[in-house]
Design a protein around this nucleic acid. Structure first.
Lengths: 157, 157
DNA sequence: CTGGACCTTCCCATCATGGTAAGGTCAACA
DNA sequence: TGTTGACCTTACCATGATGGGAAGGTCCAG
């Protein structure tokens, strides 16, 4: 089976299949005399596994671990569950963050008339930072230089 | 004010300030004789605006537009609101997708005993794709070759 | 005058994916 | 048989937003 066929069958693009091979996520494929890669059902199975894991948002790094567990007949489902749980928390954290942003922005948008005049609470909040969640801890204008480590703090100049 | 000072005051790293300048998001900073960039309150204000927009998840591309509207005294708040609304939908879409993944994975994890044996519904679902949301439309094994465009469909070789 | 905190530019890495270009292979059809 | 065009190969570049580091210049307090 050519790489294009494998791609269609597995839902992983040919480009990605080659990439996965290059980073060692899948073993080097068999080659025909022409140099074409040749895939069998075991390869398809593995590619499908990878695609499903990607569909669940797993990073390739973690998928590598999952593949190892998959092919380990003496694996512990506790290990698998631990990886899954960690990943769930990451997903939920990211989702929460996005939701926070969306909520904050929606309340700003709700306060905006959108009647064509320049007056706009959205712009105003971007100016001042009011009602903006500051996801990256910001620091900046908020904290007044916490423990002041040992930086020279070159005063303005 | 040096770039480091501006970074601390605005919450945007020096690295990013230079990058924003290089892509034209902020105007080229004034330079002192030494070649050092020199920032004033207007610059800080602009950097703060950018940071707040980033905190709301706006892309630099969209922030460029928002900055244009910000500095346009005859802007229409309808334009601003439209950008915000589009962005809210994007954020919610992404959040929904992450949440879907998390939910799907959580139900798999809940079905996994985690008792140390190899038996694992998480691994099983990754193999078969059952209960995996297939966020990228997958196609693959699901659809039976939709309208079959006009591809030769090299049957397996 | 020296040390070290700061600045400059330039390049590289991330993560997963897509695009393109230059060239080789394969099968179907005239 | 030759042509056609769908397919394959490798290699390189791009994305978006950010961080890291190197090599070298500037500034100021002690």
């Amino acid at each position: 089976m050519n790489i294009g066929q494998a791609a269609k069958a597995s839902g992983v693009s040919a480009k990605m299949i080659r990439y996965y091979e290059s980073i060692g996520l899948v073993p080097r494929a068999d080659r025909r005399d022409s140099g074409y890669r040749d895939y069998g059902t075991a390869d398809l199975h593995r590619l499908g596994f990878i695609r499903h894991a990607r569909d669940l948002g797993f990073s390739l790094e973690r998928i590598k671990v999952l593949l190892g567990l998959w092919s380990d007949p003496s694996r512990s489902n506790a290990n698998v569950k631990a990886i899954a749980t960690a990943h769930i928390e990451e997903l939920e954290g990211r989702a929460r963050q996005l939701r926070e942003m969306a909520d904050a922005l929606r309340s700003l948008a709700d306060a905006c008339d959108g009647d064509g005049r320049p007056d706009c609470p959205i712009i105003a909040s971007l100016e001042t930072g009011a009602n903006v969640p500051a996801c990256y801890s910001s620091g900046a204008t908020a904290v007044p230089e916490p423990p002041a480590p040992r930086r020279k703090a070159r005063t303005g100049r």
